[in-house]
Nucleic acid binder design. Structure first.
Lengths: 229, 229
DNA sequence: AATTGGTATTCTGTATACCAAATACCGGGA
DNA sequence: TCCCGGTATTTGGTATACAGAATACCAATT
């Protein structure tokens, strides 16, 4: 009898308890507006294990990973706290982001297809200047998505992976900067220029524009953000 | 009574068991020449806990961290293995490295002192072309140190932190490429050009040279390394 | 001889138990 | 009232115990 080949895929799913806990905790932590007030948000292991209905072990493993990601800061013998980034740390994150994303832009000019680059334009198709001003928060989402799209189109998994957490951190920051930040129109113009450079396959220009765009944000934070520390 | 301030540093050292285990395991893993043969190097939790004289818990936490760092790959219900990078992954690491280090170069032109930049020259003071050829392995160490020095001089902790593990991975790779790699003289010339650009405070040039230098390595690996996968 | 079914063993994933450090609380003394 | 010291409690760090999954081994049947 010939063995039929059914082209089955592994059924594992690969998600063990600690991974689910990790995701759930991460989601919850990001939802916390840590910069809203000065009080520190403690993460009690026993409390969490009770709430989630699991033992402390997977909780600890998840917290360990979250600490590496920078979302949690644990003080030995004291406990785990939702991490509050210092201004310096935020500026450094933006700097790293600029470095990675400008490299992504370079890669896009070399490897991405015309169709892929075209999708970037579509993201802003529904936004004119008036609309941007009207729903600034909706635009903000699109803004972040644009930057993530750049990383995706780089086709470099490592670049993408290393920026993912940076973006999540930035999202927290943005909650506070969104109101005071009316650089949206300037931003959308920058994006268009970036897209044009990508379409022209001009690696140096695209890289430079992306870097400059992100470093502009760093300069803005440097100058205007004083609600940290 | 006035309290004398003695400016004491915490006696703790901040190193809990899991951190020491992490460092020890990392050291041991790096020492393993994973690319030497095809057999997979399994990390048995019980074995390790026995060898190190601790329980499995801190071992697991260390392994968890090592997995995030990319030194270990764990398969659910199967165990932990010393990670063997694919060629694609290595190329991506070099790409990210290029992105981060070129940003470091830019930062150096803006923030580092002349004295700091001068230290870079000293690193190569003892190397002329003949010596490079003679002790290629010694030069190789200096080579890595040069790149790490660049990251240090950037004064960006995050940039430094994110490249540290990349360098460790590269060291493993280099063990295999060192013999077939006689681009050392070319390399030292590149380095000198980079130093000159830094001294001239030419951000764009320094950035470009660093990026190009590292991407050259990527191209070399792409073309010549076939002992992977 | 090869393959399949079943059993035993090993090892990860998870839960629990124990210990030591840190904090909070309380009472006594200045 | 304030400060200090000691005790109790809390809580994180570590070790151990248990259960389920994966593999290895063996035997039986074709």
């Amino acid at each position: 009898m010939a063995t039929v080949s059914l082209s089955l895929s592994p059924v594992d799913g690969g998600l063990v308890l600690k991974d689910r806990i990790y995701q759930e905790l991460k989601r919850a932590i990001i939802a916390v507006d840590v910069y809203a007030d000065d009080k520190e948000h403690r993460l009690d292991e026993r409390q969490l294990s009770e709430d989630l209905g699991v033992s402390r072990t997977p909780i600890r493993e998840a917290l360990c990973r979250l600490e590496i990601d920078g979302f949690v800061r644990t003080i030995p013998r004291r406990g785990a706290f939702v991490a509050r980034k210092s201004k310096k740390e935020i500026l450094e994150m933006i700097t790293v982001w600029a470095a990675l994303e400008s490299m992504a832009a370079r890669l896009i000019t070399e490897h991405a297809s015309d169709e892929e680059i075209a999708t970037l334009r579509n993201m802003f198709a529904t936004f004119d200047e008036a609309k941007v001003a009207a729903n600034i928060d909706e635009y903000s989402e699109t803004n972040i998505e644009f930057h993530q799209a750049l990383l995706n189109l780089s086709h470099c998994d490592l670049l993408k992976k290393m920026t993912e957490n940076l973006f999540l951190h930035m999202r927290s920051i943005r909650r506070r900067t969104i109101s005071e930040d009316n650089r949206a129109n300037r931003s959308i113009i920058d994006h268009m220029h970036i897209i044009e450079a990508l379409e022209a396959r001009d690696a140096d220009l695209a890289e430079k524009l992306v870097r400059q765009h992100t470093l502009d944000l760093a300069a803005h934070v440097e100058k205007n953000v004083d609600w940290l520390d």
